[in-house]
């Protein structure tokens, strides 16, 4: 061995050895994973070897070792609303000004000026999430949700108009709605249910969907400051099956695990929450 800068030959030797080892390992993995295993597994799935290889590579759906189940199903969905980029763009681009005029003409008789309802028969809309209003109006229009007053109103509106009304009510601060009488303050058990949920009944906290910016379903409405009478009626309707436009039973499921007393107290808690 001579003391000189390490030369090309030695680099070649190490580089060659390393490359051979890497190539060998790769060859083994590729041949075993993409060819040998699927071909040997194919008989169990009842498929030909070529299909099995395609499944192992990911070119075809399914496992190379197991048969794919047949799909034979048609059933009616509970809501037609889809949260697609197109829908979200309509909502984001909606102009609240025509929405204000529409609301004045169509909604304010029941839901009050600026969405603050004077009657316990109708919910507040002021400061409600635009996506929630849009979802419910769409469902009234499609028949997924029925209400003798709302359904005919919604059927007269276009998609864009729904979004404009949603944008108008969404533009208010929620605080105004929470100025009504307060109940349920200091109800520790209900506050716990709303903020912590109940693992024993697999009940998630109400707040994990019904507060702003919690990453829950887009259509979840804000509950704080809502009329307690309206909240209670809706919980009963979900539990009793009169209302069923909640996608994947989210509210039918939750409400069926609540007692009547809890529904009352939750409704009061949320009316008092600002």
């Amino acid at each position: 061995m001579t003391e000189q800068p390490t030369g090309g030959r030695e680099r070649d030797r190490w580089g060659f050895a390393a490359a051979m080892v890497v190539a060998g390992v790769l060859l083994f993995s590729v041949v075993m994973g993409l060819i040998v295993l699927p071909v040997l597994q194919a008989p169990n799935a009842g498929i030909d070897p070529w299909t099995a290889i395609c499944r192992a590579v990911g070119l075809k759906a399914g496992s190379p070792a197991q048969p794919q189940p047949p799909v034979s199903a048609t059933a009616a969905p509970v809501s037609q609303v889809r949260w697609t980029p197109a829908t979200l763009k309509i909502l984001a681009a909606a102009d609240p000004r025509p929405g204000a005029a529409l609301a004045q003409a169509v909604c304010s008789a029941c839901h009050g000026e600026a969405g603050l309802s004077p009657s316990t028969d109708f919910p507040h809309l002021s400061g409600q999430s635009g996506a929630a209003i849009y979802k419910q109006l769409s469902d009234f229009r499609s028949g997924a949700r029925f209400n003798a007053q709302m359904t005919p109103v919604a059927k007269k509106l276009t998609d864009e108009q729904l979004a404009q009304i949603a944008a108008y009510y969404g533009s208010f601060s929620r605080r105004a709605a929470a100025l009504g009488p307060r109940y349920g303050i200091g109800d520790a058990a209900i506050s716990r249910l709303a903020n912590r949920g109940d693992p024993a009944r697999a009940l998630p906290p109400c707040e994990s969907c019904h507060a702003r910016g919690v990453g829950g379903p887009p259509e979840a409405p804000v509950l704080s400051g809502q009329q307690r009478e309206y909240l209670y009626r809706q919980l009963r309707a979900f539990a009793g099956g009169q209302r069923g436009n909640d996608v994947y039973r989210r509210m039918r499921d939750v409400s069926s695990h609540l007692s009547d007393d809890e529904m009352h107290r939750l409704a009061e808690f949320y009316q008092g929450l600002s």
Binding site: P199, E207, S208, V214, G216
Partner: peptide
């Protein structure tokens, strides 16, 4: 999967 993850069980 979000703030209600702990109660999600079947």
């Amino acid at each position: 999967c979000g703030l209600g993850h702990s109660e999600m069980s079947g």
